[in-house]
Design a protein around this nucleic acid. Structure first.
Lengths: 127, 127
DNA sequence: CCTAAACTTTACGTTTACGTAACAGTAAGC
DNA sequence: GCTTACTGTTACGTAAACGTAAAGTTTAGG
């Protein structure tokens, strides 16, 4: 088992975010550092959560959405009903991602067309 | 040439957004409706801009980013230097999109793994 | 003529996701 | 022992993207 731990500044450096941001995420219930006296000690799990949050941000997810994602990745509640709810949520999220994939493809094509247009204009002009 | 025009409510209905949102986008310089007396008359071009903005939103773009995207799609400035700047911006944006594609793929795989895990737990349990 | 629907402007309010002090404790290095 | 660096809490501030309410026009229909 990897029992790595991290200080707040180690994580802020690694992910290029401020300590304020990390404390904010803790306040929001997204991270659960232990304490050594007053100081926060972050676990590998916290670090993974951070990665999930930041990747979510890059895809336009709110912290609330990332919170739900994190729940899906390690379900606490073990009863069948709740687990099936999770399965549905995963399915829904995958559909959203598929839509995003589609949007990205369209946008990439449009950007290619725009680049072509501009290139032609450049080649035809002299100034 | 398609000279379709649209009222504010037509667009708000079509895209399922409020009129407030549309007026806000105009204030922000993203839409340029003509006027019939006081009333706004939106062109096909405005409609396209709206589509771009909303697709951008789905991908987590800010309005500022969408504004830049729109500029790239129809460049006003015609001098060579400026056009080359646009080409670079397009390239940069495409790289960002490629990164998003990657993030989405990773997330999809992780969701698949999470679903597998949950499914196994469900099958092993009775309640 | 009157009402209802759709449109307008102006302006203050709200949520999210932190930024930015201000002030204090603590641990390490010289 | 003193400075420096890191850590902590508390709390007000802020930018983005609209929401919401107030109050006034305009236009089509009965």
């Amino acid at each position: 088992m990897t029992a790595n731990t991290y200080s707040i500044s180690e994580l802020s450096t690694e992910f290029d975010i401020t300590t304020r941001t990390i404390r904010f995420y803790e306040d929001e219930g997204l991270l659960f550092p232990q304490r050594d006296g007053m100081k926060r000690i972050f676990s590998e799990k916290d670090r993974v959560h951070l990665m999930l949050i930041l990747r979510g941000k890059r895809l336009g997810f709110s912290l609330q959405e990332s919170r739900e994602l994190i729940e899906l990745y390690d379900p606490k509640s073990g009863n069948k009903k709740q687990l099936n709810v999770f399965l549905k949520k995963i399915h829904t999220k995958k559909q959203e991602l598929a839509k995003q994939l589609n949007d990205i493809n369209i946008m990439q094509n449009e950007l290619d067309l725009a680049a072509e247009k501009i290139t032609k204009i450049i080649n035809k002009s002299t100034n």
